[in-house]
Design a protein around this nucleic acid. Structure first.
Lengths: 215, 215
DNA sequence: AGTATGTTTCAACAACTGTTGAATAAGCGT
DNA sequence: ACGCTTATTCAACAGTTGTTGAAACATACT
């Protein structure tokens, strides 16, 4: 029976448990004993594999960040290659930014939903926010900013960066899945429906960027 | 000397200290002893005035929420009254939503900056997010949603609510003031410059809403 | 079989947590 | 000056925190 299941290593079990707990309660709201209990291991094991709590958090955060960056950059590259010479459409850039994260089968996996919760927490935390997000995502984001600047030669730097700010804020708030939209819309809109949100956000954000290019 | 200064009550000193600490470290990252030390009072006094830690957090959060709702609703009312009969412009609605919060002399006060940090934390926290934000702000937000629906009769509910989601995400990320934009733009844009961000965001968000009304 | 190496648990640490009840101080009407 | 109510501090509680060093287990190589 046991050999029929695919058993993950205890090290990965700790990462998974950490992910789920950090997503729901943030860094300080989680104790190493909560994580160890969920992972079915002793408290000391987290220390053995990952060092201090701080490092466990960062490693948990970065594990999926790289996957995510690759998805996005592949999508961006594909749309740049497809345009070949001619100007790239703003919509395609925004789509390359949002689609890989907000659609697809990985949304069914609790691991990814949990990770998204962590991203939401980190992105708007005054303490972690700037540092950790920049370290994990900025190299990839730089490419998107460049592409937007190319597609919108008339737009000022201020407009481009604050436009990206709007995009990033909207995405990470979607990641938090707080259920606020459900309450506000009296059930008409579901904030856990990322695929539905994706369709609306692409239009909305694209319009924003196109407007600032008309200066 | 002492009678020349305007001394705030110890109760208010606790609220101020709580605000600053919760903004920087979130709920679980703050201990009552940190707050008491900053306020210059004994630990037990927080309990005497506010009950449990949980209640202190909520009272700190709600203290300024009402002020903020009033600012916004006054601005909305003014622009609705000014339009009188004719259709209200989308831009004026967005302006009424953003301007009172992102511009003005209160931005110089550390208390308000701290409070904004709390809002950022609460809004994208999976645990607090839905409940507390809805309780504090939704009655006012409902009015803005109505106004947007009136101004954009062709837009679907999905589009309106996800549009508001983008607006809310962008605003609360601005509140977090993480310094990420500074890093990403290599110093060209400053994420603590809310007034500068306001100018860009009004254009960007207005364009988004106007687009979804053209269906 | 024995040994070296990497995992995992056990037991304990000093420090810190939110909360409480009793003790003390302050403010104020009379 | 007295009593009464409200503020504030003090001292302590039982439980929890991250972290560690030593001990026990597992695994693979010789």
């Amino acid at each position: 029976m046991a050999e029929a299941e695919i058993r993950i290593s205890r090290k990965d079990a700790i990462l998974d448990a950490a992910e789920a707990n950090f997503a729901e309660h943030g860094y300080d709201g989680v104790t190493l004993r909560m994580i160890a209990k969920d992972a079915g291991v002793d408290v000391a094991l987290a220390n053995y594999h990952f060092g201090r709590k701080h490092e466990l958090f960062e490693q948990t955060f970065q594990r999926r960040a790289e996957i995510l960056n690759k998805w996005r950059l592949d999508a961006l590259e594909a749309c740049l290659k497809q345009a070949e010479e001619g100007p790239v459409s703003v919509r395609d850039i925004i789509d390359a930014y949002l689609r890989p994260l907000m659609t697809g089968p990985h949304l069914k996996e609790p691991g990814w939903r949990n990770y998204y919760g962590m991203v939401a927490y980190v992105n708007s935390s005054t303490a972690w926010g700037g540092q950790l997000m920049s370290r994990s995502f900025d190299p990839a984001i730089d490419r998107f900013i460049e592409a937007l600047q190319d597609a919108l030669p008339e737009a000022s730097d201020d407009a481009i960066y604050w436009g990206y700010h709007c995009l990033s804020g909207a995405l990470t708030l979607a990641f938090a899945q707080t259920g606020r939209l459900d309450h506000l819309s009296k059930g008409k809109v579901c904030s856990t429906d990322l695929e539905g949100g994706y369709l609306q956000m692409v239009d909305f954000i694209t319009a924003g960027f196109e407007r600032i290019g008309q200066r």
